[in-house]
């Protein structure tokens, strides 16, 4: 038996909206630790890793480890029928092929349930080694969204360079070049507005803006985003999910031919 109840149901809606552009079908792995998902995009360039810890749920029952295979476009259609303030319960029987979504309005005057057919998805699980990153940037997620959106008007790729001067986002395209530099800025009374740059070594990497823009669909999950970079590793773009876990996007760099 699998049954979990999430009071802040909007979190689930936001997570699915953030990943459904990159991933069509995915397994949610359920264990006593919580719910997790790992999936690659169809081009095998980006990897998504989601964790929602069990202690973030009001009720969490998972009698044995199960993988629940689902089509994210269908999950999105179903979650769109839930109100933003609704409490969401997910239920599945052992060996069943249905997942039940139950949506309760905050004052309990509307309760809906929808059963969704599950899928058998063969997915590759990748080992992500713990890494010490050469540069870690924490910045307002809205600012990162704006940078990615603005640069896509000029070019298709972004070079992210971290030096002791700050972090520079650069692009070049047919109409010209663009650079945006963000410096460290610690706003003590508003920590969410801070930009904090931790750098061990200067690092500069090139990425496809199309993927970066897709990652920023997670902006509403968190007021800040953490970007971790090392010269020989995929970038990690992480949105924390309040008191529950994280949504991480890994993106392989583009390299000189």
């Amino acid at each position: 038996m699998f049954e979990v109840r999430l009071v802040q149901g909007s979190l689930l809606k936001k997570v699915v909206e953030a990943i459904r552009e990159l991933v069509t079908d995915a397994n949610i792995d359920c264990s006593s630790t919580g719910l997790s998902l790992q999936a690659m995009d169809s081009s095998h360039v980006a990897l998504i890793a989601l964790l929602l810890r069990s202690d973030g749920f009001e009720h969490f029952r998972c009698d044995r480890n199960v993988s629940i295979g689902m089509n994210l476009a269908n999950v999105s259609k179903i979650l769109r029928t839930a109100g933003n303030d609704d409490i969401i319960t997910l239920k599945a029987d052992d060996d069943g092929d249905l997942l039940t979504f139950m949506f309760e309005s905050p004052n309990q005057d509307r309760i809906s349930d929808i059963e969704m057919k599950l899928m058998d998805i063969k997915s590759e699980h990748l080992g992500i080694p713990d890494a010490e990153y050469e540069a870690v940037i924490k910045m307002p997620s809205q600012e990162f969204l704006r940078i990615c959106k603005d640069l896509s008007n000029i070019g298709d790729t972004v070079v992210i360079s971290v030096t002791k001067e700050g972090v520079k986002f650069s692009t070049r395209g047919d109409i010209g070049n663009a650079n945006i530099v963000c410096r460290q800025n610690t706003t003590l009374d508003k920590p969410d507005d801070s930009t904090i740059i931790q750098m061990k070594e200067p690092v500069s990497l090139t990425f496809a803006l199309r993927y970066m823009n897709s990652f920023t669909k997670a902006t509403s999950l968190s007021s800040s985003v953490t970007i971790s970079m090392s010269s020989d590793l995929p970038i990690v773009v992480e949105y924390k999910i309040a008191d529950m876990g994280y949504l991480r996007f890994y993106l392989a760099p583009k390299i000189e031919d």
Binding site: H44, V45, L47, L126, G127, A208, Y250, A252, I255, D257
Partner: peptide, 14 residues
């Protein structure tokens, strides 16, 4: 001039 690396170049299959 740039080629897109795959994520599988960096992470191993479990």
């Amino acid at each position: 001039p740039c080629i897109q690396k795959k994520i599988l170049n960096y992470f191993s299959r479990d």
